[in-house]
């Protein structure tokens, strides 16, 4: 093969690969534009039926229960308006805790129980030393007491 046609083949191959990669990425992009649904959307029936999807929200305070088998965890995920009970078998990310953000992937059972196959922790964009966090928490508590 002449070097010229060899190079042409190489270019064509590279372009084809690249177009394929970009197409795949754009496809993933479109499918996951809505990375997760909120519990309210799920309650309103806006979540996809018959396939796995994700719910994002806050892990409700006081909702985490570990089953006797040691691997199954029950908790509730909420956007403060609606609450969805979740059941999950497996290890949880370090940042998973009550009152913090989480995204769960799985399917919604007919009983309204969400069977999660994956649990991700979603953290916020605030970075501060523990002492500052403590001060913020105290201030919030004080504000709540005043409000009540």
């Amino acid at each position: 093969m002449k070097p010229r046609s060899k190079r042409l083949l190489l270019v064509a191959g590279a372009v084809a690969l690249l177009v394929g990669a970009v197409a795949l990425v754009l496809n993933a992009f479109q499918q996951n534009l809505v990375f997760f649904h909120t519990p309210t959307e799920v309650a309103e029936g806006k979540a996809p039926v018959g396939r796995a999807f994700r719910i994002g929200g806050m892990v409700e305070t006081g909702s985490i229960r570990r089953a006797a088998d040691g691997v199954t965890v029950q908790f509730a995920i909420t956007d403060t308006a609606k609450v969805i009970p979740v059941s999950y078998k497996g290890s949880l990310p370090d940042l998973f805790s009550e009152g913090k953000g989480a995204v769960v992937q799985g399917t919604l059972g007919p009983d309204g129980q969400f069977q999660a196959s994956e649990v991700l922790a979603k953290h916020d964009e605030n970075y501060m030393p523990p002492e500052a966090q403590h001060a913020v928490d105290q201030a919030k508590k004080a504000a709540q007491t005043v409000a009540q």
Binding site: L18, V25, A28, K122
Partner: peptide, 30 residues
């Protein structure tokens, strides 16, 4: 991995950043 619990997810931020890498590769290859 240690914070979210996954190396990779196909959310809009990560996917569009991956697309940026392909654009760089495309520019250089072309």
């Amino acid at each position: 991995k240690p914070t979210w619990g996954a190396y990779w997810v196909w959310d809009a931020r990560l996917t569009s950043q991956l697309l940026l890498l392909f654009l760089y590769f495309g520019f250089m290859a072309l």
